[in-house]
Each structure stands twice: as structure tokens, then as C-alpha cells.
Amino acid sequence: MHELSFAEQILDAVQTEAMKYPDARVARIRLRAGEQLALEPASLTFCLNAIAAGTSAEDAKIDIEPAPGDELIIEEIELNG
């Protein structure tokens, strides 16, 4: 269960970016997860949704694309509103 510690860092980075667009809501977060991290997509999504409650990312859809390697990358975020 190390997904939570990644989720916290993802949300931090997403919120830092989203703050540049004060009225926007985060609609989607696209991630690329290195298989060596052994992140469970369902668990990572659950953790992100749980800790994003009350933030502009609380309704964000989470897309996690598997990739080789050991890096977790936030590819892009979609904003609306």
C-alpha cells in the first residue's frame, strides 16, 4: 500500500498547477506509471479520489497508462469551468 504516498505527491503537483487557473476545476489527470513501481491502478485512483475531496480535483477522472521503467509521470491535466 504505497499508493497513498504517491497520491499525496500527485495531488500536490496538480493543485500547484491548477492554482494558476483560479476558477477552473480539474476534470482529468493523466498519469504514466512505470511498471517497476508496482502501483495498483485501482488503489492509486481510490487514494487520489479520497484525498482530493474538497479540492478543485475532487471530481477528476484518473487515467493511468502503464509504461516501462520506474517513473511516475503526470502527463497532463484537463481543466474546465
Binding site: 504505497h2 504516498s5 504517491f6 499525496e8 505527491q9 500527485i10 503537483a13 498547477e17 487557473y21 476558477d23 477552473a24 476534470a27 517513473e71 511516475l72 509521470i73 503526470i74 502527463e75 497532463e76 491535466i77 484537463e78 481543466l79 474546465n80 469551468g81
Partner: peptide, 16 residues
């Protein structure tokens, strides 16, 4: 306003 922001930002686990 709908907008896609490219980040390509590496994330490390908390504690790194």
C-alpha cells in the same frame, strides 16, 4: 474555459 495543461512532471513518493 476548457483547457489541457501538459505537465510531463515526474512524481516521487512522499519522503523521497
Amino acid at each position: 474555459m476548457d483547457k489541457t495543461v501538459k505537465l510531463e512532471q515526474k512524481v516521487k513518493a512522499k519522503g523521497h
